[in-house]
C-alpha cells in the first residue's frame, strides 16, 4: 500500500495530518479493507523520506480514533469497526468545501453563482467521461 501514500512536505499543512487524511480516505474508499496490514512506521517513513516521529504520530492518532488497531506484538491493521460518524462523505469533503467557499466569498460570488459554477463543472466532467 506504500505506493498509495504521498505527502507534500512544502504545502504548509502538517505532514501527520496529510497522512491521517489520506489513510482515512483510503479506508472509506475501500482501497484498504478491514484487516489490511499496514507497513511499519519505518517503512512508511523511509518510503516518504519523512521523519518517523511524524508517521508514528499519524498512526497513533488513527489508532486513537478507531480507524486502525494494534494488538500487542502484532502489526497495525485496519480496524473492523471504523468510526462511521466521521466517515460520511459530508464530513470528508468538509475541509475542501470550506476552502472553496472561502475563495468564492473572497471573489465576491453569491451562493447561487457558486452553485451554477459547480453544476457546470459537474456536467463538464460527465461529458469528459463519455
Amino acid at each position: 500500500m506504500l505506493e498509495l501514500l504521498h505527502v507534500n512536505p512544502s504545502s504548509g499543512e502538517p505532514i501527520y495530518r496529510q497522512l491521517t487524511e489520506q489513510i482515512i480516505h483510503l479506508i472509506v474508499g475501500g482501497q484498504l479493507p478491514t484487516d489490511t496490514v499496514l507497513p511499519s512506521v519505518r517503512q512508511i517513513a523511509a518510503h516518504l523520506s519523512v521523519n518517523p516521529m511524524t508517521v508514528s504520530r499519524a498512526i497513533q492518532q488513527l489508532v486513537d480514533q478507531g480507524w486502525l488497531e494494534r494488538r500487542r506484538g502484532q502489526a497495525t491493521r485496519v480496524a473492523a469497526n471504523t468510526p462511521k460518524t466521521t466517515a460520511s462523505p459530508e464530513a470528508l469533503l468538509a475541509p475542501q468545501l470550506a476552502d472553496v467557499l472561502a475563495n468564492a466569498r473572497q471573489l465576491g460570488l453569491s451562493l447561487s453563482q457558486l452553485q451554477v459554477l459547480l453544476a457546470a463543472q459537474w456536467q463538464q466532467l460527465d461529458s469528459d467521461e463519455k
Partner: peptide, 9 residues
C-alpha cells in the same frame, strides 16, 4: 527548505 520540511522535528 524542502529538506528541512521533511527531516526536521
Amino acid at each position: 527548505t524542502s529538506d528541512l520540511e521533511r527531516v526536521a522535528s
